[in-house]
Design a protein around this nucleic acid. Sequence first.
DNA 1: TCATGTGCTGAACCACCTTCACTATGTCGG
DNA 2: CCGACATAGTGAAGGTGGTTCAGCACATGA
Lengths: 163, 163
Amino acid sequence: MTTSRQHTEALGRILELVVVLSDDMTRSLAAQGLTDARAHLLWELHHRGPSTQRVLADALRVSPRNITGLVDALAATGFVTREPHPTDRRATLVSFTEHGAAVTAAMERDQHEFARILFDGMPDDRFTALVEGLDDLLARLRAHGVSIDASREATDPESEAGR
Amino acid sequence: MTTSRQHTEALGRILELVVVLSDDMTRSLAAQGLTDARAHLLWELHHRGPSTQRVLADALRVSPRNITGLVDALAATGFVTREPHPTDRRATLVSFTEHGAAVTAAMERDQHEFARILFDGMPDDRFTALVEGLDDLLARLRAHGVSIDASREATDPESEAGR
DNA sequence: TCATGTGCTGAACCACCTTCACTATGTCGG
DNA sequence: CCGACATAGTGAAGGTGGTTCAGCACATGA
């Protein structure tokens, strides 16, 4: 039986991993002239293709007003362009410039390289055990009502009843 | 031999865990009237006892100027107090109020409860494998020059030479 | 056509972080 | 003891990321 102390130490390791990973990503993003939020937007755009700001707002879980600002900045620095939506004259379509597409492709390459650093050469049994452990953690979080989507409706006090 | 695709998926799991964990923490902090940065400061204070702002700035890896603002906010909402340093008249000591100490103690209880949710009842072999896997990842990151402290000196182009 | 909903933006605001300049104090060598 | 230099904290100004509210332009359905 594992102890509470071991649990807390394991949580500490996860949090350290969180800090190291996000720091490193922020740094490599900054090297390309991007902030976290702007890179995140580019990433969505990469996976969805040209999108309206509304769609991006939902994807990034952020207010539409904020998307305006991010797109302003990305357009000013030449990563994306705004074009009128072909059928809905209210909406604008955000698309990559060539530069934006190139940078995003580089981001994807970096991601694979990063995964390689983390996992390449790791024994199969350890890799499998690690992934199973992570899935277990995610399942436990979900089982306790902790999930990404909870941030939307968790303001409702009723949803705390199940604790 | 594991594939590049599996690596990328595993990285995705870690990132999801990161998002879920930090979202959940931010939410429970907000419930106590705290933001991430302010809670982080309280946490440091909890582990160090009354500290000068300089010490807190180093601990949080943040400019001293920013500490002034955070302490201002925490003092205004009654979590901490500023007192003159007993021997160094340049410095001020930041200490908990009763309220601040109580809230921080609650944070610590929450952390243990959270670790319990994550790990309690997990089979010993899985728990051990997970911790070993996490340690492996941290070791790989450090081996590739990715570390918490790298954020300080990584602005030096020389240090990139080892890639 | 008229009412209502949707997409985006201006204005105003808060949190967090930075750098630069400045004051007040500590410290150390001559 | 004193001048030179270092250190602790803060004011001012500014960038980024986020919010809400109000308003305009357009879409849509009764």
